[in-house]
Every structure is written in structure tokens, then in C-alpha cells.
């Protein structure tokens, strides 16, 4: 007699429940692409503004300039940073929400909460730390510190979402360390990490999990 238990189906279901309950899997690749585009736009705008105020190599001049010059530019840079982060987050949230709705999953569950807090704590600490670096005259270390803190935040969050995010984390950490050796190219590294890094990760995730399989 064939037993009335399908062990394979049970094992598959258990695996899926364990995965679904502990990891946030609705994060859309399009979120990464969107956030990357926003970061590129933010970097381009910041570069243009500093060049128009301080001439060619605006950021380098600002870094090496007086405390007063840095203090007077702080509101702009802070506004730009907060604006870019908020816009990138909004875009990322929108695409991820759309995906969760399409797949009929709850967006804000226990896994999403853990993912959010594991990202938020290092990011807020990193943000405050970067302001101090800038105010105290180590402006050249701001972008490397941003990349390093963000990489650490992603690594911390990787426990609660799909493993590919570790790739993005290591990319950020590596870029952050290299950027700390080349402070004059801060804008380039910002664009590489937050812009192209996110876009690359987004494309990878989109191709792997979301693109409709070709029939």
C-alpha cells in the first residue's frame, strides 16, 4: 500500500516556509536599477553645482579649502544627500511594493522589519559619522566612509534577504577602500558605487528572478 504521505511535497513546503518567513524575497531588481539612476543623477547635480561655485575640480578645492567654505556648502551637500537617499528609497520602495502585490505577498512582515532595521542602524550611524568627518576637515574621507558604511549595512542585512546582496556589499566595501586612497576622485567613486553598483545588482536580480521566462 502506498503511504498517504508525500514526503517530497512536505519537505519542499517546509523549505519554502522557512525561507519565506526568515528572508525578505520581494526586493525587486528594478528597485536597485531605480536607486542607481537616482544616485547617478544626484552625483551629476552635485558635481555640476560644485564646479559652478568653485571652478574646475570643485570638490577637491572645497576639500582643501577653508573651514568657512565647507561650512557654507554643508547645507547644500546635506540637502543633496538627504534628497538623493529619500528619492532612491521611494523609487526602491515603489518597485518592491509592486512586486509584492503582483506575487500576492505581504510587504511589511517580520522579515521586512528585520531587513529594514538591520539596514537603518548602520546607515544612520554612518550618516552622522560622515557629517563629523566633513565638519572636522576630513571631507576627503566622506565618500569612502559612505561606501564602507553602506557596504557594512548591506552585509548586516544580507541575513534577511537573498544572498546576492552580499555581492553588492563586497563591491561597496572594496570601492570604499580604494576610494580612501584616491580622495580626489570621490565623485567618480560615488557614481561607481551607488550608481553603477546598484544598477548592476538590479540587472542581475531582475534577470535571475523576475524576467518572464522565454517560452
Amino acid at each position: 500500500m502506498k503511504p498517504a504521505v508525500d514526503p517530497l511535497a512536505q519537505l519542499t513546503e517546509i523549505r519554502s516556509i522557512m525561507e519565506r518567513s526568515s528572508r525578505f524575497i520581494s526586493l525587486s531588481g528594478l528597485s536597485g536599477i531605480g536607486a542607481g539612476v537616482v544616485a547617478l543623477a544626484g552625483a551629476a547635480f552635485g558635481h555640476w553645482y560644485l564646479t559652478s561655485h568653485y571652478g574646475e575640480g570643485g570638490f577637491v578645492r572645497l576639500m582643501e579649502g577653508s573651514t568657512e567654505a565647507r561650512a557654507s556648502t554643508l547645507p547644500f551637500l546635506l540637502g543633496l544627500a538627504v534628497g538623493t537617499v529619500l528619492l532612491a528609497f521611494a523609487v526602491a520602495f515603489w518597485f518592491t511594493r509592486r512586486r509584492a502585490l503582483q506575487d500576492g505577498r505581504t510587504l511589511w512582515d517580520g522579515a521586512a522589519r528585520r531587513l529594514f532595521w538591520s539596514l537603518a542602524v548602520p546607515l544612520v550611524v554612518g550618516g552622522l559619522f560622515c557629517i563629523q568627518l566633513y565638519v572636522r576637515g576630513a571631507a576627503g574621507l566622506v565618500v569612502p566612509a559612505m561606501l564602507v558604511f553602506y557596504g557594512m549595512a548591506l552585509l548586516n542585512a544580507s541575513k534577511y534577504t537573498l544572498d546576492e546582496i552580499k555581492l553588492l556589499a563586497y563591491t561597496m566595501l572594496l570601492l570604499g577602500l580604494v576610494a580612501s586612497l584616491l580622495p580626489n576622485y570621490a565623485f567618480l567613486f560615488f557614481a561607481l558605487g551607488f550608481g553603477l553598483g546598484h544598477i548592476g545588482y538590479g540587472l542581475l536580480m531582475y534577470n535571475r528572478y523576475e524576467r518572464a521566462p522565454r517560452s
Binding site: E13, I14, G110
Partner: peptide, 16 residues
Amino acid sequence: RVRLGVMAVLMANDGV
């Protein structure tokens, strides 16, 4: 199924 599901969630997460 439900009991199996509950245990699966609690195996992967603490304090649900």
C-alpha cells in the same frame, strides 16, 4: 500541514 508550517516558521525564527 498547519502544525508542520508553524514548526517550520519557528525553526527559522525566534520569538514570532
